[in-house]
Nucleic acid binder design. Structure first.
Lengths: 356, 356
DNA sequence: AGAAACTAGGTTATCGTTAACATCATTTGA
DNA sequence: TCAAATGATGTTAACGATAACCTAGTTTCT
């Protein structure tokens, strides 16, 4: 709808009312199937509405009703299958509860986070689910949104607020178990690829990795931890496979390269596999690999990838349900946290126990 | 914003106006930086606005202004990196033109297409970019939207309307060139994996494939064309790799299996590669493969995948620009079509010329 | 010095819809 | 049989913001 196309104007309730000879209110009752309307009137109104190609003005309706029955989801990188599954689960859950979903993308930068929040707030969504990484500017704006009484649920984002629910996979435990698995197989020189010290799920996975090493009294070698301090996803065209590929190349050039590898996610693992093959080494004989996420592709790498499966659908579903509860609740609800278990899926990329 | 949380109500322009001692209109001028306001008044208003945590009501504003400066993008499967790149380009282009973007996902079914269109129309977006596959119900609803004077641009969707612009990669030519490349290498038994006879880009790629075979007088063997009539993407959890994997397995069990393969897209190709390796065959020696899209992962498969690169960023950018033109144009514009060239990227998965 | 232009506001009406209440006829129940 | 319930509308007043128009004081230019 746009005033710049004046040729035909959108008909309104009043237009229909005038053409049928009733008041706008009666037409509204017909359209919304509420209140009493005689069959005769209803039919006349419906006919006129169809003829005039009537489409209700959601803005006016929402303005009056003070609710849009719409929820916003802010995602970082949507190329990640994780985001896809999450979005799908959120959408389905919301749909069943009568809400529609708008997705905004923020490529992990504060500025874009803010833009996303702004557009959603501007459209008066009834609530927001945030699944981007934490960052200063974004957090501040988000806090303002919460103070405006817009219900918010965060997924995997480090954001503390007494009225914001939190859903996350147990990245720490997942990282711990992945590393533990490699240790159990007899590995001592275990690398971590794709560290991001700025926070987010990757940091938690790294911490789990460190904990496992420490617990088994394996010395931590910083040269085995690759990654960057900067926000890699801001480099355009720098895909997550590339992080794995380049990280692995660096590791392979060390005087004493690792015998095993835990990658921050499956795509990073795939990039690392590519580098390993390029170097003429084989998986898992020379180097064992564990990924994270269990994307569908993990089953089709050669060899199939051992990985940590996170319950993406469940995360989305829970977040959506919590948000709807908040939206529909008359009182303020206290913060709720749900940390969901991950599951180690052992495939061939870690192979058998390493001979000592 | 929701009336269900009545504890603190959102302040309005009038609230600020009252607290400062001016009219709402003056506050509006300050907020919008339009019209004349004295520095003194401006400061008082801004201070009050900040103190009261004022957030403008976009609904009321849009209702009055008859424009939301927002565009909707309807995507099918967002897990496809193609969708990601497209969305990114669209978002960036729109952002530079002062529009914000909302994405709706429709997993290719008519019902969900309609839901997506409905929510977008309901929010009075200024225009819609549609990148889902054509389907009857969706097309009908879409036509209604266009008749309501909401500007629409379609990407790769078979939808004819005199006021709807069309952007698409040249899937036909891309399919032709991919097949031509295999023929040039000496292949005669060339399979197509992932056909979808219901239309969409896959059908066009298949037609290009058929044309190339015909032109070189290679007999078309229907057993070498795998795919389904039904809409595979509606089967939950049935990923596009799976199509390639299963299709390839079927092809390998033929009495006279193909020596080359053109896959509807890169992920299908990756699935097929997995099946080929599982059967103990090698690429490209036993079977050569060409994919489509040139996703970033194509560089990291082993061997790296020969594929047809489509200009995803350009598609998104053009679509966004055309849409903005339509939105800002005072007159009706005729349909414009842009069919964009694709580029064959030769990598190792097709190897050298086949010895006869 | 007087007209024109600028500055700093205020007034009014409206965007399209609907909640809340009012009106009046027709049924229904005790 | 008459009050109460119900059915079918109409009326009024917002929801919050702003375009369009109006007022009046202050500069500026010729």
């Amino acid at each position: 709808m746009n005033k710049k196309h004046p040729n035909r104007k959108q008909p309104t309730l009043s237009d229909i009312a005038a053409s049928v000879g009733v008041t706008p209110m009666t037409v509204s009752r017909v359209i919304n199937e509420s209140g009493y309307v005689s069959d005769e009137t209803r039919e006349k109104v419906l006919l006129a509405a169809k003829e005039m190609n009537y489409r209700r003005n959601g803005l006016a309706r929402a303005l009056k009703r003070q609710s849009t029955e719409t929820v916003g989801l802010v995602l970082g990188d949507i190329s990640n299958p994780y985001s896809t599954e999450l979005a799908r689960a959120v959408r389905e859950t919301l749909f069943n509860r009568g809400f529609s979903l708008f997705i905004c993308i923020s490529e992990h930068s504060a500025k874009e986070d803010v833009v996303a929040f702004e557009s959603l707030a501007d459209h008066s969504v009834d609530g927001i689910i945030v699944a981007t990484r934490s960052n200063e500017g974004g957090d501040e704006y988000l806090r303002g949104i919460v103070e405006s009484n817009i219900p918010v649920v965060v997924i995997g984002r480090d954001f503390q607020h007494e009225e914001v629910d939190f859903v996350s996979p147990d990245n720490f435990k997942g990282g711990f178990e992945a590393t533990q698995h490699l240790i159990d197989l007899g590995h001592k020189r275990i690398a971590f690829v794709g560290a991001n010290l700025k926070g987010g799920s990757s940091l938690k996975r790294l911490q789990g990795y460190l904990k496992a090493l420490t617990e088994h009294e394996i010395e931590i070698d910083e040269r085995l931890i690759t990654g960057r301090n900067e926000d890699v996803s801001e480099i355009p065209g720098y895909s997550t496979e590339e992080i794995g590929f380049e990280g692995m190349k660096r590791l392979l050039s060390l005087p004493n390269p690792p015998t095993a590898l835990f990658a921050r996610n499956d795509f990073t693992a795939i990039g690392a596999m590519s580098a390993i093959k390029e170097a003429g080494l084989s998986i898992p004989e020379d180097i064992a690999i564990v990924g994270f996420d269990d994307v569908s592709l993990a089953l089709r790498t050669s060899p199939p990838l051992t990985t940590v499966r996170q319950p993406m659908r469940l995360e989305g579903q829970l977040a959506a349900e919590m948000l709807v509860e908040r939206i529909e609740s008359k009182e303020r609800l206290p913060r709720r946290e749900r940390i969901l278990n991950c599951e180690l899926i052992v495939r061939e990329s870690t192979g058998l126990r390493k001979r000592q």
